[in-house]
């Protein structure tokens, strides 16, 4: 019995994982199927873009500027040892645009969006508001999931572009002040290092992360059981699921894009 128990736990965990993946895929399928039917709910989507995107601007600003400054400082220090501090723009560009800005943006802003969505939908679930939408003849997936899914998928790439610009400004500031590399020179070497595929890979990543974040946030919200404690549990699960999904998909997309770049 005691020998079997660990295997039972592993089996149970694998089954729960498949259940979760199946449930989330079904929700995506239903959202896409219902979302493309008229009416498209443009007003709801716009509202969600404002709620999820515009309100994330302060955090995005902070994240963009500081990641640009920190990474440029790190690279600058390392390159100074080789007497190559002028290459700091080239070195920072790829790491920031391809990897750090989209991934960190998803881990911070994405997690904020996902937990917010889970908490909102979870509260609606426990107070029977989701049942009320269905009982009034509307479709909760169309009304609640579709606008949030579209908004997060649109918002994260836009915030990624915004974050990239700020990371460049932050990097140029550090290059100029700390390493005495003129900001104009930093900018030129930074831009010269980048090819269209680098921007595309960053945007594809943030698009994928946006979709994952919206989907996980909505799914966990809909899965909330009973009581306010359940909302807390769902929100915590969302943070874990979002972080794991972003890290895994980041690796997968990196392996896809690296040979291309």
């Amino acid at each position: 019995m005691s020998v079997r128990r660990p295997f039972e736990y592993i089996g149970e965990a694998i089954r729960a994982g498949f259940d979760w993946a199946g449930g989330i895929s079904l929700l995506l399928g239903r959202a896409l199927l219902r979302g493309v039917q008229r009416p498209w709910g443009i007003y709801d989507v716009f509202n969600q873009i404002v709620a999820l995107g515009i309100r994330s601007l302060p955090l995005s600003t902070l994240m963009g500027v500081f990641v640009g400054m920190a990474l440029t400082w790190q690279f600058g220090e390392a390159l100074m040892g080789f007497g190559a501090k002028n290459a700091v723009g080239s070195a920072a560009a790829l790491a920031l645009v391809r990897e750090l800005v989209p991934t960190l943006m998803a881990l911070t802003i994405g997690a904020k969006i996902a937990t917010g969505v889970t908490a909102e939908l979870g509260s609606m679930k426990v107070s029977e508001q989701i049942d009320a939408i269905a009982s009034l003849g509307a479709d909760p997936v169309k009304k609640l999931v579709w606008p949030r899914l579209v908004a997060s998928t649109v918002t994260l790439p836009l915030l990624n572009i915004y974050g990239n610009v700020l990371a460049l400004i932050g990097g140029a500031f550090i290059a100029d002040i700390v390493f005495d590399v003129p900001a104009e020179y930093f900018y030129e070497t930074y831009i010269d290092e980048l090819y269209p595929m680098d921007y595309i890979s960053g945007l594809v990543k943030s698009f994928t992360f946006g979709l994952l974040v919206g989907l996980i946030g909505c799914y966990q919200g809909f899965q909330t059981k009973f009581g306010t404690e359940a909302v807390g549990i769902s929100t915590t699960n969302t943070v874990v699921a979002t972080s794991v999904a972003i890290i895994v998909f980041d690796f997968v997309l990196t392996t896809i894009f690296l040979p291309v770049g």
Partner: peptide, 18 residues
């Protein structure tokens, strides 16, 4: 949808949309 147009439900806590 048609069923729910004809059969309405009043929930225990009201379930008004916040």
């Amino acid at each position: 949808r048609e069923l729910r147009r004809n059969v309405a439900m009043v929930f225990q806590g009201g379930a008004l949309f916040d």
